[in-house]
Amino acid sequence: MNPLLLPEHGGPDDGPAATFDFSTNASPLGPPPALLAAVQAADRRAYPDPAYRALRRLLGDEDLVLPTAGGAEGIRRLTLAAMLAGRREVWVPQPGFGDYAQAAQALGLAVKPYAQPADIAPTAPALVWICEPCNPTGASVAAWPDLGGHLVIVDRAYEPLRLQGDTPALPPGAWQLHCPNKALGLTGIRAGYAVAPAADDMWRHALSLAPSWVLSAEGVAMLTHWLDDDTQAWLAQARATLRDWTAAQRALLAELDWQQRPSRTHFWLARPPRPDYALRLRERALRLRDATSFGLPGWVRVSAQPPAAQQALQQAVLEIEGEDA
C-alpha cells in the first residue's frame, strides 16, 4: 500500500513569516475583546471537567453535544465512529477540505467525490460529508436533499463567515460540526464541538473514542463564550467589515485580470494571469493558497484582508508584471 500523504493547508509554512497572509480562511479581524480576555484568563493549573458537562449544557443538549479538539480531530473521530457504526463508503465534496478523504483512506474506506448534491449516490451504507459553505470555494447550495438511510455530517466551520444569502435547508437527521475558531480568528486554539441528532450507536462510538480532556482550558473558555450575545454582536459587525473588504479586493483582482469564482464567504478561488504568481508573491512575503491539491492547478484560494494588505498585493503584482514586460 502506498503511504498516505498529509493534506495541504493554508496558513503558516516552513518559510519566512509572511507579512500578509491571503491563504488562511480564518477571519482576519481577530477575536472579540471580552472573549479573548476570558481565553487569556483561563486557569491552566487544573484539568477541565473531563466530561465538560457545564460547557455541553451551554452549547445545546448536554446529551447530544460532543466536544472536539477542533474540526480536524472531529473529522477523524467521527469518520472512525461511522466505520464502527457500519459505514463503508465516504462521500466527500470535490473540491473540498482534504481531511475528509484522508480520514477515510486511513481506515481503508471507499472514498467517493461529488461536485453537486445530485452526484451523491451511495451503493453501500455511507457517510456523507457536507461543508456548508464549502471550503475552498465559499460556495453554497439552495437546499440539500434528504439522504435518508445514510449518515450525514455537516461541517459548519464557515457558517459564521457567510456574507451572502441564507443558510440552506440541511438534510434531516444530520450531525453538525462547529468550529468557532475560524470566525474568531483563533485557529491556534483547537476546540470545536459536534451536535448529534440522537444518542444512537454513532453517538456512543464517537463519545467513547474521545481522548481524555480533549479540550484545553483555553478551548473551554473560548467555547464557553462562543454563544454570548456580545460575541455574536461582534461577529455581525465583523461580517459587515468583511463584506466591504471582500468587495474591494474582488474589484482589485478584477482590475489585475484575475479570474474569480463566486463565493458566499470572505474567501474564494481566483486564477492569476500566470501560474507562478503564488510562488513569486510568496518570495515577496505574501502568501496565497495554491489550489493544486484541490485538483485546480493554476488557481489559488484567497481571503479578504485589510486595506493595507490589499495595497501590498497590488504593488507586488505590478512589480511582477513589470519584471515580465
Rank of each mutant, 00 (worst) to 15 (best):
R239M: 02
L235Q: 10
V214I: 15
L242S: 06
L227R: 10
D230S: 06
E218Q: 11
L215S: 01
A238D: 09
V220H: 05
H225Q: 12
T224C: 04
A240P: 02
T241H: 03
L242W: 07
L235C: 05
L227A: 11
A240L: 10
L227Y: 11
T231D: 12
D230H: 13
Q232Y: 12
W245H: 08
H225G: 03
Q237H: 10
D229T: 15
M222E: 06
A233R: 14
L223Q: 14
Q237S: 14
R243Y: 10
A236C: 09
V220S: 04
L242G: 03
S216Q: 11
Q237E: 07
R239D: 04
W245C: 01
T241D: 04
A233E: 08
H225E: 09
A236H: 15
G219A: 06
L227H: 12
L227Q: 14
W213P: 00
D244S: 10
T241W: 04
A238Q: 13
T231Q: 15
L227N: 08
D230E: 09
V220K: 14
A238R: 09
R239E: 08
L215E: 07
R239F: 00
E218H: 10
A240N: 14
D229E: 10
M222S: 02
V214R: 09
W234Y: 15
E218I: 01
R243A: 05
S216R: 13
L215K: 05
M222D: 05
T241A: 03
L235V: 07
W234H: 12
W245V: 02
A217S: 10
L235Y: 09
A221T: 12
W234Q: 08
H225P: 00
W234R: 12
L242H: 08
